[in-house]
Simulated assay, not measured.
Amino acid sequence: MTTTEDWLAAARIDPSVGALRPDYRALLIVAEGLVPGPSDAVSEELLAKAEATACDPEQHPHAAAWREAFQAFGAKPKRTRPSVDALLRRAPEGLPRIDRLTDIYNAVSVAHVVPLGGEDLDRYAGPLRLTRADGTEPFELMSGGEPVTEHPRAGEVVWRDDEGVTCRRWNWRQCVRTRLTTETTRAVFLLDALGPMDDTALREAGRALTDALCAAAPGAVTASRLLRAA
Rank of each mutant, 00 (worst) to 15 (best):
Met1Val: 15
Met1His: 10
Thr2Ile: 06
Thr2Glu: 08
Leu8Ala: 04
Arg12Ser: 08
Pro15Val: 00
Pro22Asn: 08
Arg25Cys: 12
Glu32Trp: 12
Gly33Asn: 09
Glu44Trp: 11
Glu51Ser: 12
His60Trp: 10
Ala64Thr: 15
Ala64Asn: 13
Arg67Phe: 13
Phe73His: 01
Ala75Val: 10
Pro77Met: 03
Arg81Val: 01
Pro82Gly: 03
Pro82Tyr: 09
Ala86Pro: 02
Leu88Lys: 01
Leu88Trp: 02
Arg90Met: 14
Arg90Thr: 13
Pro92Phe: 08
Glu93Tyr: 14
Asp99Gly: 14
Arg100Lys: 07
Asn106His: 06
Ala111Gln: 05
Val113Leu: 14
Pro127Gly: 05
Leu130Asn: 08
Arg132Asn: 07
Asp134Met: 10
Phe139Asp: 11
Met142Lys: 07
Gly144Glu: 07
Glu146Lys: 01
Pro147Phe: 07
Thr149Cys: 14
Thr149Arg: 15
Glu150Gln: 12
Trp159His: 11
Arg160Asp: 00
Arg160Cys: 05
Glu163Pro: 00
Gly164Cys: 08
Val165Ile: 10
Arg168Tyr: 00
Trp170Val: 00
Asn171Leu: 04
Trp172Ile: 01
Trp172Gly: 00
Val176Glu: 08
Val176Gln: 07
Arg179Ser: 13
Thr184Val: 06
Gly195Phe: 02
Glu204Pro: 05
Ala205Gly: 05
Leu209Trp: 15
Leu209Phe: 15
Thr210Ile: 11
Asp211Trp: 01
Cys214Gly: 04
Thr222Gln: 00
Thr222Met: 02
Arg225Tyr: 07
Ala229Lys: 02
